[in-house]
């Protein structure tokens, strides 16, 4: 992965997002999913470092798929035709409010959940990977390389620079306010008071950052920021494989458009073998 130019990686990632999300056809989704798994393995990340990312994705997939699609039957909106083979008919009433919930888990909806898992899982594989395989120094040059103006691309780079500084400022302010008896843990009152109690932290850090920005802007002007077309010293070079990857991305996107809009191959269907498992 290190040898693939970051610009090519971004192009591929976005082409993948656009392509995969055109389909509900399980055959294509499987193909995309396998492609994503291969790509993810190329990144050679360790489970320990990506665990936090997957925790979030896991939670998202759980709410999307288990709660919304399987339990409440909401998620399959517009894709799964109404009706179908009911697996587990049930209706129950939520206590206290007396809301009646009726739903029937159908085979179709269960299969849809699997398709959703492949589609969302594929997209997640591609996008969770980015921060773990991208050198923070490369962001500015990469976005410049993807046709953003110098000033906007540089903003990203400058942001990285200020993260540790502001992190330290926040810690100092927290200590300074604690010394005045401020206790984060003891927030009393309703939601409004609770949120307002963050002001002693928020205000000094924000205002300090704004005051400091005058000096930073001066320092940049004094070193000719925006005076000429910027050179980005981060080395970015396309190799043949990068061109191949970009070509592949373009083909994937084009192929998907053709498959979905001309051959109408994007649609959802349930394979017979799956149906036979239940019916």
């Amino acid at each position: 992965m290190d040898r693939i130019d970051p610009r090519a990686r971004w192009i591929f990632s976005f082409a993948f997002l656009l392509s995969a999300t055109m389909f509900w056809n399980p055959a294509f989704l499987l193909l995309f999913f396998l492609l994503a798994v291969t790509w993810y393995l190329l990144g050679r990340t360790r489970w320990k470092e990506t665990r936090r990312g997957w925790l979030l994705v896991g939670f998202m997939l759980f709410t999307m798929i288990v709660i919304n699609t399987i339990i409440t039957g909401g998620g399959a909106g517009g894709v799964v035709p109404p009706g179908g083979h009911v697996l587990w008919p049930a209706g129950f009433t939520i206590p206290l409010v007396n809301w009646q919930i009726y739903f029937g888990l159908t085979v179709e909806r269960l299969w849809f959940a699997i398709c959703q898992l492949m589609r969302l899982g594929g997209v997640s594989l591609i996008f969770v990977l980015i921060p773990y395989t991208m050198d923070p120094r490369a962001y500015g040059a990469t976005f410049r390389g993807l046709a953003m103006p110098d000033s906007v691309a540089y903003t990203m780079e400058l942001s990285f620079r200020f993260i540790p500084t502001l992190g330290r400022d926040l810690a100092v302010t927290l200590d300074a306010q604690k010394a005045r008896g401020y206790e984060l843990e003891k927030f009393k009152g309703g939601i409004f008071q609770k949120i307002a109690r963050i002001a002693p932290l928020l205000v000094p850090v924000t205002m300090n950052a704004i005051i400091a920005s005058e000096d930073v802007a001066n320092a940049m002007d004094l070193r000719c920021f925006g005076q000429a077309k910027r050179t980005w010293i981060y080395p970015l070079r396309y190799h043949w494989w990068d061109h191949a990857l970009i070509a592949f991305s373009a083909l994937m996107l084009l192929g998907s458009v053709v498959a979905v809009h001309i051959f109408n191959a994007g649609g959802f269907w349930v394979p017979d073998w799956f149906m036979r498992l239940f019916v």
């Binding site: 000033s151 942001s159 200020f162 502001l166 850090v205 950052a209 940049m220 925006g226």
Partner: peptide
């Protein structure tokens, strides 16, 4: 979007990230 705006945007983004991260942690 001149130098000053670049700095405000960069500092704003860093601040949003740090505060978001810190208040998650707290």
């Amino acid at each position: 979007f001149g130098t000053r705006e670049v700095v405000y945007a960069a500092i704003g983004a860093a601040l949003y990230a740090v505060l978001g991260y810190a208040t998650n942690m707290l």
